[in-house]
Write a protein that binds this DNA or RNA. Structure first.
Length: 296
DNA sequence: AGCCAGGTTTGGC
DNA sequence: GCCAAACATGGC
């Protein structure tokens, strides 16, 4: 990795990054706009335009000292090839090599929590449209290169908007979850302190929030709190584990136990590995039947 | 029309 | 503790 600044632009060279895969297709974030081959959005508090270069990315506008922020956001300091090798004894680990340039983002805790509360029993397309609708209605406006986009609304902005207006945008029963959680945070729940806590303690605190169960908590921790051992288990990961890890997960009956077993088995990189397994499963790159049989 | 979507909550054993 | 059903919404 090599970082160069020119005026308001930061260029990060010699990194493995596929922006469309990471920002638009991988279902770990839902708020980015793709316009003319560039991507516009707020990256953990920094409104920015990102585009791919020959062997990396260019970001603008940026301020002095933002380099470390974007390296962290795109997780450029972690070597994903090493993770693929470390799990090479599992046939399904070819998922890592099949998705070059997918990064596991370090988003802000609230942004990740917001989007994954909306994700419950929902599909990626509608999570995205709800995220964009709520952001445009209640978030802050930004404009770069004539492209207009919005911050995800803060807890305070959601509380000011009210549950009924949120429901009016199509949130369904998730409006109550998101509104009540926003109110808890606005009233002092220490969301930003959870990143500094251990996985288990932070997980237990997150589960206190309305609309946050094991899966949403794990996604918020993995994508928004730097807890790389969090191992979210959704429908896709469950099917994949039953098919391709039947010995390792033998006797594991429910998703809560699968998530615990995933952390035990894969350790600190469990969540990174999970993201590759998840996406490969969802896209049919690693096939299996409904009964959990491998389909090679 | 009925099933599914990166689930959570609630109420019954 | 574990399990089933209810919960809004839109796309296929």
């Amino acid at each position: 990795m090599n970082i160069v600044r020119r005026g308001e632009e930061i260029r990060i060279h010699s990194v493995d990054i596929d922006l469309r895969l990471t920002l638009m297709d991988s279902a770990q974030t839902f708020h980015w706009l793709a316009v003319n081959g560039a991507y516009y959005g707020v990256a953990a508090g920094r409104p920015v335009c990102v585009r791919e270069t020959e062997n990396g990315v260019a970001l603008s506008p940026t301020a002095e000292g933002d380099e470390a922020h974007f390296v962290r956001y795109f997780d450029f300091a972690r070597e994903y090839e090493r993770i693929g090798r470390a799990f090479a004894m599992y046939p399904a680990a070819r998922a890592v090599g099949m998705l070059p340039g997918m990064r596991v983002l370090n988003q802000s805790a609230w942004d990740a929590l917001f989007m994954f509360i909306l994700s419950s029993n929902n599909n990626a397309g509608r999570i995205r449209s709800l995220t964009l609708s709520l952001s445009e209605a209640f978030g802050q406006r930004h404009e770069i290169n004539g492209v207009e986009f919005y911050s995800i609304p803060t807890p305070e902005e959601l509380v000011a908007a009210g549950e009924e207006k949120m429901r009016g945008l199509g949130c369904g029963y998730r409006a109550a979850y998101l509104y009540k959680t926003a109110r808890r945070i606005a009233e002092g729940f220490p969301l930003d302190a959870l990143s500094a806590m251990g996985y288990e303690a932070a997980h237990a605190r997150l589960m206190e929030l309305p609309g946050v169960g094991d899966k949403v908590a794990d996604c918020a921790q993995l994508f928004g709190m730097g807890h790389s051992e969090a191992f979210p288990v959704d429908v896709w990961v469950e099917r994949l584990l039953r098919a391709w890890f039947s010995e390792e997960f033998a006797g594991v009956t429910n998703r809560h136990a699968m998530a615990r077993r995933g952390r035990e088995l894969f350790g600190k990189d469990a969540g990174i590995f999970q993201q590759f397994l998840f996406h490969a499963a969802r896209k049919g790159l690693i096939p299996f039947s409904e009964e959990g049989e491998k389909a090679i």
